[in-house]
Nucleic acid binder design. Structure first.
Lengths: 226, 226
DNA sequence: ACCTGAACACCGTTCAAGT
DNA sequence: ACCTGAACACCGTTCAAGT
């Protein structure tokens, strides 16, 4: 969430770079070359300044990454027309968050910020908590339900992003892909019969995108009276 | 999973350090000082050798971290007596994985290895997939169900571990804690009424450990015929 | 086969000083 | 107030050589 910059004092040396410029340039670097390539030194160079100048606008690299996440959320989260049925409102809001995050897998490094990714996401959290309450949960259980949905969503993003990263830097002659294959090929069907049974389909099955199915299951489970 | 070391050739210089020693020393460093402090250089020093000697026993740091995860899984995963009811078998197996991972939060950096954390975990995956099949799911849906449970579990670990890390290195005068507080204090009750309603309880509610409740909800949802 | 020394190509951050 | 230069205290990994 871009804070309104403090009212500019007229004293002192005029700034040459702004926090907005720092964030915007960082975003460009990350989009072009990935989050690994974002270093304070490179950022300074691209902005035409020195590493130390950056520390005047952000506290440290961690804060820069959080600002980047905020920036991304504010830029890509679009509020859908909420469906009439509360259960569907929950699904739609969670899917919107998921979609925004899935679009930038580098976010994984930052994402894992407790329960709230950004002020821009509050409206979506509201939809989820409200939907759960409308479906009959107490506010307390609704907050816990929101967290279960968030764990599921964050887990999906993190697991998928890491798997993709591994595949990418394992190269074409993927030695990592064969690790799982080797394990599955060596399964003892007596000890692990179900896994042996599905072994051949494991790769295609896990390649399917089942986020939405799983989300519906999580929501259904939360709404089942127990 | 410690591979049986290849049969030792009798030619060439005898090894001074072993892969096992490398992993064991790395584990000690991580336990004592955290995963951030595990560097190839320090590991070499503590083992009484040089950084380059390590590269003779592990391909690179990433592989070392995977070995560490395997080691941890093999060491801490204990197979519970599976309950008679398949639904409870699923819960018990997932909880065991969760417990093993929650005990070493540094694992987050590595954890996010696709769908399979370690060969030692296969038995637990078997319990979950089998339980889902016993409850009436097709093998295909059971694999997808396992993944939903894994996403939820991995998400819980990652989110909680990162939150804890943030709290730890924010220090006592936590500036980060007040970020959420500030956002919740500034909530517009007209726009976000539910969040405004639960704002005061958000911190205690999210501090509760609701992994098991959420897991039960996920499993219930997967078993609801849809 | 296993290990070493030296080097390459970097990091994030701090300090003291300049404008 | 804002920016710079130089330095601190590190990284992971590669290369060429030694035993």
């Amino acid at each position: 969430m871009p804070q309104p910059s403090a009212p500019r004092k007229t004293r002192g040396r005029p700034p040459r770079i702004s926090r907005e410029e720092v964030v915007a340039t960082a975003r460009r670097i990350v989009d072009e070359d990935g989050v690994d390539r974002l270093t304070m030194r490179r950022l300074a160079t691209e902005i035409g300044s020195t590493p130390m100048a950056l520390y005047h606008h952000v506290r440290n690299k961690e804060e820069l990454l959080l600002l980047l996440l905020d920036d991304h959320a504010a830029r890509t989260l679009r509020r859908p027309e909420p469906p009439a049925h509360p259960r569907e409102r929950i699904i739609v809001a969670a899917s919107a968050i998921h979609e925004a995050l899935a679009a930038c897998p580098w976010i994984v490094e930052v994402l894992t910020a407790d329960d709230l990714m950004s002020a821009s996401a509050l409206w979506f959290v509201e939809q989820i908590v409200d939907g759960l309450v409308e479906c009959g949960l107490t506010p307390e259980r609704a907050v816990h339900g929101y967290r279960a949905i968030w764990y599921y969503t964050a887990g999906e993003i993190v697991v998928r992003a890491t798997a993709a990263r591994r595949r990418a830097d394992a190269g074409p002659d993927a030695d990592r892909a064969t690790y799982r294959e080797r394990i599955f090929a060596d399964l003892d069907p007596d000890e692990l019969p179900r896994l042996a049974q599905v072994a051949d389909n494991w790769a295609p099955l896990t390649a399917e995108d089942t986020y939405l199915d799983g989300l519906r299951a999580v929501v259904d489970g939360l709404l089942v009276s127990r």
